[in-house]
Write a protein that binds this DNA or RNA. Structure first.
Lengths: 170, 170
DNA sequence: TATTGTTATACTCTATAACTATA
DNA sequence: TATAGTTATAGAGTATAACAATA
């Protein structure tokens, strides 16, 4: 153990807590501002290039990953928004012929939402351009750094999900 | 150079680009969902504990860092929103006695917005609780990882600012 | 003329709660 | 009764553009 480590362990708990708090705050502010900047950029480009919005794009992306369709409730969970919003976005996309509601044969209250052929085609175009934008905006990191960030963000996320269970006790 | 490196260099450019695109997309989706989850949590807690909102908290945080006050235009830049919004938030906070508009002696069109004594006191309470929340939500990372993320996010951000200059050519 | 801040307005995204129709 | 989805509504949070006062 080096002298420096010994010195580090000498500082009292309160000081270490304060330092950790400051560091966490700094990280959070940087996460937030970076994400907002990228999000705004992508939002503007989606509007300008494809006349669409982030939630609409997101819903189609969910469906593309699930060719058998997703029920409204599943979309709601995955997109982290309440049901009414899913109805609204689905209505728009259905009107434009990009998605369709297919009634569930087992449960007549439920639908599966699927991409139409036109929706798949439209989404494919948008997705490849979108992916290139994201790669461009994250070009400041090399592949190794990206892997590191992906895994670090995972531990933050899993912590958050664990935390929400904790709230049930309140 | 190891065999593995040689193999890596053997794959063609297109494949490597595709891999990078996928990885970037994965990272971006994780950044976005993690940030949204934390943001929602903080938003809810600010509402529940202090009956305030994120933009209001953010404006006060900006002022706390600048005791001499900030002009409306500076707040607008720092908070990445347009001027009209700053007017609205400032109006609310001024009405509650938390901030004040001080007219600029050099330029009679302009104000400096400052925290009042009450605003400083209120903010101090909120900020320390807020900081503890953030530390709690980011507890999944150790200090070394936090430092890494902070520096990686810096390179992303500086890249983004450079990119916006590029847009002037369009 | 250009700039600082304000006003008025509208749009996107969201949550909530009451509702319908099934289960 | 409970659940799947819809409807209606309200409220953040935002941008845009026309405006007044001043530079």
């Amino acid at each position: 153990m080096s002298e420096r480590d010994t010195a580090t362990e000498t500082i009292d708990l309160e000081t270490r807590l304060t330092q950790d708090h400051h560091q966490s705050l700094k990280l959070w502010l940087r996460m937030l501002s970076t994400t907002v900047m990228i999000e705004n950029e992508i939002r503007n480009r989606l509007r300008a290039e494809f006349d669409t919005t982030l939630p609409r794009f997101d819903l189609m992306a969910q469906l593309e990953r699930h060719p058998d369709g997703l029920r409204m409730g599943e979309l709601s969970k995955r997109m982290m928004v309440t049901g009414g919003n899913i109805t609204g976005i689905t209505d728009q996309l259905e009107q434009e012929g990009l998605v369709m509601r297919v009634s569930d044969k087992q449960d007549r209250r439920a639908y599966s939402v699927k991409l139409t052929a036109a929706g798949r085609k439209t989404f494919k175009t948008m997705a490849s351009v979108h992916e290139a934008w994201v790669a461009e905006l994250l070009a400041g990191l090399d592949p190794e750094q990206k892997n590191q960030m992906i895994s670090m963000l995972s531990s933050v996320k899993s912590d958050l999900s664990a935390g929400s269970k904790h709230n049930e006790n309140e």
